[in-house]
Simulated assay, not measured.
Amino acid sequence: MTISSEVLRRVHATGSQQDWVVTTPQLKSAGADRNTVRRMVRSGHWVPLTRGSYWVQVGRDDRGPSLRSRVRGALLACGPEVVAAGPTAARLLGIQGLPKDDGTLHLAAPPSHEIRSRPGIHVHRTTLSPTARMTLRGISVTTPVRTCADLLLQSLGWRR
């Protein structure tokens, strides 16, 4: 059984607005059931990013999902209270001179948020003021000033 062209069109329409990332509820809304999702993942057309989000591979891209797509997937799955922070925010902001990327996403979440650190995602518990966060091409990140402060504190061995 193949996925219908209408379902695929809806999934692509959503993904094209979100760095080619879709969430499980968005897939369900587009008409993709669990079996369809499993088949598309097995075939390599959809790549799981984090619990509840997938990268919709359009064409053959052997590089895999971009940093933006990986962050978008994590943020869509976590909700609007969570932002990219630390080295992840710095890379998205184009800050130079960072250590080599080890692939770990750094996210800032309120102390009461349910997301937890796990392999590939490091959650920093902090309360961010509205002036310490911004939206960069649709992705919530810490501001350049806050990002640089976090990087400086991290280099000094402080944990936030």
Rank of each mutant, 00 (worst) to 15 (best):
N35W: 10
P111D: 04
A74P: 12
T2H: 09
Q26G: 09
S4R: 15
T104N: 14
T88F: 00
P48Y: 05
D61N: 13
T36Y: 00
A30I: 02
P130F: 03
P25G: 08
L92K: 02
G64K: 15
P99F: 01
S155F: 01
L128D: 10
D102E: 13
Q18F: 15
G138E: 12
A85Q: 00
G120F: 05
R38L: 14
S4Q: 15
C148P: 00
S16W: 12
P65V: 06
G79M: 03
M134S: 09
I95D: 00
C148A: 06
H124I: 14
P119R: 05
G73K: 00
P65F: 15
W55M: 12
L67F: 04
T135H: 01
L152D: 13
A85F: 09
A149E: 15
A132G: 11
L49M: 10
S155D: 10
T126N: 08
H124C: 13
L27F: 04
L128Q: 05
T135R: 04
L92F: 03
D102A: 07
G44T: 10
R60A: 04
Q17I: 01
G73S: 06
P65N: 06
G15F: 09
A149S: 14
A149W: 02
L76Y: 11
A84W: 08
R160N: 11
D62K: 02
H122A: 04
P111E: 00
S117D: 08
P25F: 09
R9M: 08
P144H: 13
T147W: 02
Q26E: 05
A32R: 01
G64D: 08
N35H: 11
T50H: 00
L93A: 07
L76A: 07
D101W: 12
N35V: 10
A30L: 11
D19Q: 04
R118E: 11
T143P: 15
Q57R: 12
A32N: 15
I139W: 12
E81Y: 11
R9N: 09
H106R: 03
T24H: 06
I115Y: 05
S4V: 13
R63T: 10
R70E: 10
R146H: 14
A108C: 07
S29Q: 15
L107W: 02
M1F: 09
H124D: 06
L128V: 09
I95H: 02
A77S: 05
S16I: 06
R116D: 10
A108W: 03
G97C: 03
R34N: 05
V47R: 02
R10Y: 07
L27N: 13
L152C: 12
I95G: 07
T2E: 15
V22G: 13
L8I: 03
L107K: 01
R146T: 02
P25Y: 14
T50Y: 01
T126W: 00
Q17H: 10
T135Y: 00
V82Y: 12
S140I: 08
R39K: 02
M1Y: 02
G73Y: 09
E6H: 04
C78S: 15
